[in-house]
Amino acid sequence: METLSLSALVVFLAEIGDKTQLLALMLTLRFRVPWLISIAILIATLLNHAAAAWFGSWVVGFISPNFLEYLIAGSFFAVALWTLLPDKLDEEEALISGSGVFFTTLVLFFVAEIGDKTQVATVLLAAEYDSMILVIVGTTLGMLLANIPVVFFGEKLAKRLPLQWIHRGAALLFVVLGIVSLT
Rank of each mutant, 00 (worst) to 15 (best):
115 G>W: 08
157 L>V: 05
76 F>C: 06
115 G>A: 06
93 E>V: 07
36 L>V: 10
3 T>Y: 11
119 Q>H: 15
133 I>G: 06
12 F>Q: 00
174 F>D: 05
142 G>K: 05
50 A>L: 13
22 L>D: 07
4 L>D: 01
114 I>P: 04
103 F>C: 07
7 S>K: 03
137 V>E: 00
89 L>T: 05
118 T>S: 13
135 V>C: 00
156 K>Y: 11
36 L>A: 08
92 E>G: 09
80 A>S: 13
31 F>A: 09
135 V>I: 07
41 I>P: 03
48 N>R: 11
30 R>V: 07
132 M>C: 11
131 S>M: 04
75 S>N: 10
180 V>E: 12
144 L>W: 02
9 L>Y: 03
122 T>E: 01
159 K>C: 06
50 A>K: 08
113 E>Y: 12
43 I>L: 15
173 L>R: 02
105 T>G: 02
11 V>I: 08
50 A>R: 10
26 M>V: 12
182 L>Q: 06
165 W>I: 10
140 T>R: 04
89 L>I: 08
33 V>A: 13
120 V>I: 11
76 F>D: 02
162 P>A: 08
104 T>S: 13
172 L>E: 07
13 L>R: 05
101 V>F: 02
145 L>G: 08
118 T>G: 03
57 S>M: 08
130 D>F: 15
125 L>D: 00
132 M>D: 08
100 G>F: 09
21 Q>M: 04
163 L>F: 11
49 H>S: 07
25 L>P: 03
142 G>R: 03
